[in-house]
Design a protein around this nucleic acid. Structure first.
Lengths: 188, 188
DNA sequence: GCATTTCAGATGACAATGTCAACTCTTACG
DNA sequence: CGTAAGAGTTGACATTGTCATCTGAAATGC
């Protein structure tokens, strides 16, 4: 038998899933509370029992995405057999994959102004990244190069998405740029 | 006496200015065609005589912003007295300035999917940038490093805007990251 | 076991907004 | 001078976010 709180939690989950699916399929303008409710099997007003408003729902989706990324990064960094350099590459390409396969979600994860909860989840996903970098370039330089790498990946994805990183104009591509950066890392 | 086409052109200008002002003041959601028309002294339907729809108006604003940036870059690169290294720094900090002082406009300039006209204007603004880089690192490597620098600046601005580039977390900031990149440029 | 409270959900209503169709009126043009 | 063109206005409509109100079932207190 399902209790009331269980049912409410299930509804909340359905709302989040429906909204995330709509976002991936049709972008931000496809996410309407009416359609979200409809797909989740509830009415248009039901989301207000679980989220303060539409922005709050979107922020929750972004926070969950950061949480998943954090979990992946933690799992990656925990593998003792894998070399640090490979872990770093995996983390960066994980970010590239999200940006390319779910561009709308990726943009939502970098929304300004960011929600507090989302920022915390994002920061958590960056901790294992810093740990791996520490192993590579030493703890002193880890933050510096971490910021450099993360901002670069973010910039690559942004310009790629807006079509400003065309191969014919720049005679290079995302992977090549990233290789240059990784190759320039000082050995720790 | 003002002709009809002159008056229409003036209205179009007023609409663009009003929309750009609203964007800077209150972000994208503050740009409503009704308020744009009102500030331009016309009715809510008038914009449709000059732009296909709201998106078209926004795309025109973005294209104009890229055009202005292109003009500045051309003027900068034309100065024969200024060292190439300083020109490069000026161009990059010009981009940083726009991103910080007019974040909503900056985001609009990197919208996905981008309008064709806007992409052309953006590409035009990058030509003098490539010229300066050619002087610095040679024509062969100009494109590669140009893409690296531009994507980095874009990424820095994006993460700064969403609050993910806090000094206490990364123990560095935008200017320091940029200095690192500029310092890593091979001498041409 | 029953009365009461709580709360998820449904529904009606409303204002804001993008957009279109119909209309007006000034201006350019034959 | 008459006619066409087109800038601008206005009425209308669908969509959407949001709130107030209502409903019904589950949890809680006695």
């Amino acid at each position: 038998m399902i209790s009331r709180v269980e049912s409410a939690a299930a509804t909340r989950r359905s709302l989040l899933d429906a909204a995330a699916a709509l976002l991936n399929e049709g972008g931000p303008e496809a996410v309407t509370l009416r359609e979200v409710g409809s797909r989740a099997g509830v009415s248009r007003g039901a989301p207000y029992r679980h989220f303060h408003d539409k922005d709050d729902l979107l922020a929750a989706i972004a926070a969950e995405a950061w949480d998943r990324l954090a979990d992946e990064a933690v799992a990656l960094s925990a593998d003792p057999a894998r070399p640090a350099h490979d872990k770093l590459r995996d983390m960066l390409s994980g970010m590239l994959t999200i940006g390319r396969e779910k561009p709308h979600l990726y943009r939502l994860m970098h929304r300004a102004p960011a929600a507090e909860e989302m920022l915390r989840a994002a920061a958590r996903s960056q901790d294992p990244f810093l740990t791996v970098l520490s192993d590579l370039v030493g703890p002193d330089r880890a933050h510096h190069y971490g910021a450099l790498l993360l901002t670069s990946v973010h910039g690559i994805l942004g310009m790629e998405a807006s079509g400003q990183l065309s191969r014919e104009k720049w005679r290079t591509d995302a992977d090549e740029i990233l290789e240059t950066l990784l190759g320039a890392l000082p050995a720790g």
